[in-house]
């Protein structure tokens, strides 16, 4: 068996220089990484910032992060997929997070979720084909005193029902 050498790859620095030049969000991310002095243990903090900037963690962002922190790509990907908060897929225009914590659950959060699923034909973690809405669930947002709670585009809304939720969703999703 003969060993065939892989073709030479472009230098990472060159590759990422073009990313930096083309998108100022990378500049902001770079500044953030510098704030953490490129410390490898800041990986999760950096990914938080990256997701805030880009909306989700696309491959190039992960590669860039790995390069900046001098970490193997497999480590960055392993961390990004371990935590629920990080998403590697783009989100829809709007998000609807149904809290499935215990308090919300005993007060009927599953019925709310079923109603949204029935209305949109998507499952938690998915986005409608028209990219209008991403449906997500949470394990508990700590709003148990006002259960069941649903988060619409980042706003926690108390005492929801299937009806109120659908009313909100219907404003976003085509009939």
């Amino acid at each position: 068996m003969t060993t065939v050498l892989a073709p030479p790859k472009p230098q990472a620095a060159v590759r990422f220089a073009s990313l930096l030049a083309g998108d100022k969000r990378y500049k902001i991310l770079e500044a953030h990484i510098k704030k953490f002095q490129h410390r490898q243990d800041a990986l999760i903090e950096v990914l938080h910032k990256a997701q805030e900037l880009f909306g989700y963690l696309e491959d190039d962002v992960l590669r860039y992060t790995a390069w900046q922190l001098k970490l193997p790509a497999s480590r960055v990907y392993g961390v990004a997929t371990f935590y629920h908060f990080f998403t590697l897929k783009p989100q829809g225009e709007h998000t609807c997070v149904v809290c499935l914590g215990t308090a919300c659950y005993v007060k009927g959060a599953n019925k709310i979720l079923a109603a949204v699923e029935g209305r949109t034909h998507i499952r938690p973690g998915e986005t409608t084909p028209d990219n209008k809405l991403s449906l997500l669930t949470a394990r508990c947002i700590g709003a148990c005193g006002i259960a069941p709670a649903v988060v619409y585009d980042g706003t926690v809304t108390p005492r929801q029902t299937a009806e109120t939720t659908l009313a909100q969703i219907n404003q976003w999703v085509a009939p």
Partner: peptide
């Protein structure tokens, strides 16, 4: 490395 978690964990190469 390992990616994902729980029973959906899997071994990956690079990214």
């Amino acid at each position: 490395n390992v990616a994902g978690r729980g029973t959906k964990s899997r071994i990956i190469s690079d990214l």
